[in-house]
Design a binder for these strands. Sequence first.
DNA 1: GCCAACGTTGGC
DNA 2: GCCAACGTTGGC
Length: 139
Amino acid sequence: MAKTQHWLIKSEPSVYAYAQLEHDGSTRWDGVRNFEARNNLRAMREGDLCLYYHSNEGKAVVGVARVARAAYQDPTSEEDWSCVDVAPLKAFTEPVTLDAIRARKGFANLEMLRRNRLSVTHVTAAEFKTFLAMGKTEL
DNA sequence: GCCAACGTTGGC
DNA sequence: GCCAACGTTGGC
């Protein structure tokens, strides 16, 4: 059994909010058109955990999703892009705002801060644990 | 293979 | 709605 990896995925809540994911039960995470984000999608394995970040509005991590299906050809493109399926796992008791993330010591190397325009970033196990604590949430 | 132009993302 | 950052594209 491969070790679970952790990721952070971004979505504008006006486009697809976490509540929508909970409503739908699962969704295809498609439309990614950035090579680095694509590589991250391809590194995902079923069962990996994703922090779900609301960009633009909210600007906070609001929950955890689980990779329900590893990377496959993105059906919304004829070209070589990938998508995964994700399912909701647990909403955070308290959203973890961007301000709080920035203020947090130990998050200096957080990829989503360093590469703020990348929509799919890697999160270390330690960072993930910290996020859960900040969100007052246990899985 | 360089670099300017362009498009997209995301914070403010 | 604006603008900065930055990845991508295309001309040379």
